[in-house]
Amino acid sequence: MIQGIFGSEGQLFFELDLITNDGLNLPVDAMLDTGFTGFLAINKQDLDSLDWIYIGKERLRTAQGETKFSTYSGKILLDEQEYQIPVYAGDEITEILLGSKWLKILPLVANYQAGLLTLG
């Protein structure tokens, strides 16, 4: 189980490690976005140092409408477990996003009043 933090506007942030193709772990804070139905979304510029394998393009619906995203096979470390997942990359993504697909395999507890935020 990993502890998260609440952002100043109620956002849910969790720390995870992006694992480069060379096996280097890069710790980052990712925001949970329940409107995003994938596992992970990242800005294209952040991909350069990861050297993840390109899979192709995929159309996804966002708040701004339908957009084409590049898809990569990425590896992350979350809650002390490695996951090989599809990662969506786009120029318009400003935060590293955890999507709602995680909620199908990991329980989320968010209690603002108690200051409790956990995933896993």
Rank of each mutant, 00 (worst) to 15 (best):
M1N: 10
M1E: 09
M1C: 02
I2L: 10
G4Q: 05
G4P: 06
F6Q: 07
S8C: 03
E9T: 12
G10P: 04
G10D: 02
F14V: 05
E15L: 08
E15V: 10
L16N: 09
L16C: 10
D17Y: 11
D17G: 00
D17P: 00
L18Q: 04
T20K: 04
T20H: 03
T20Q: 03
N21E: 14
D22T: 14
D22Q: 11
L24K: 15
L24P: 01
L24S: 12
P27G: 10
V28S: 10
A30C: 11
A30E: 05
M31K: 13
L32M: 08
G35I: 11
G35R: 11
F36I: 03
F36G: 02
T37P: 00
F39I: 02
L40E: 05
A41E: 12
A41K: 09
N43Y: 08
N43G: 10
N43P: 04
K44M: 09
L47E: 04
D48W: 01
S49A: 12
L50Y: 06
L50A: 06
D51W: 00
W52T: 04
I53C: 02
Y54K: 11
Y54P: 07
Y54M: 04
I55G: 00
G56D: 04
G56V: 07
K57Y: 13
E58H: 08
R59I: 08
R61D: 08
R61W: 09
Q64I: 06
Q64F: 04
Q64S: 15
E66L: 09
E66M: 10
T67S: 08
S70E: 15
T71H: 00
K75Q: 13
L77E: 13
L77V: 04
L77M: 14
L78P: 09
E82S: 12
E82W: 01
E82D: 09
E82R: 13
Y83W: 15
Y83V: 06
Y83K: 05
Q84G: 01
I85E: 09
P86R: 11
V87N: 07
Y88C: 02
A89T: 06
A89V: 05
G90C: 06
D91R: 09
E92R: 02
E92C: 00
T94I: 12
T94S: 15
E95F: 04
L97C: 10
L98M: 15
L98T: 12
G99E: 03
G99M: 04
S100L: 04
K101A: 15
L103H: 07
L103Y: 08
I105Q: 12
P107T: 13
V109N: 11
V109K: 13
V109S: 10
N111K: 02
Y112T: 08
Q113C: 00
A114L: 11
G115C: 09
L117W: 02
T118V: 14
L119V: 13
L119S: 11
L119I: 12
G120D: 05
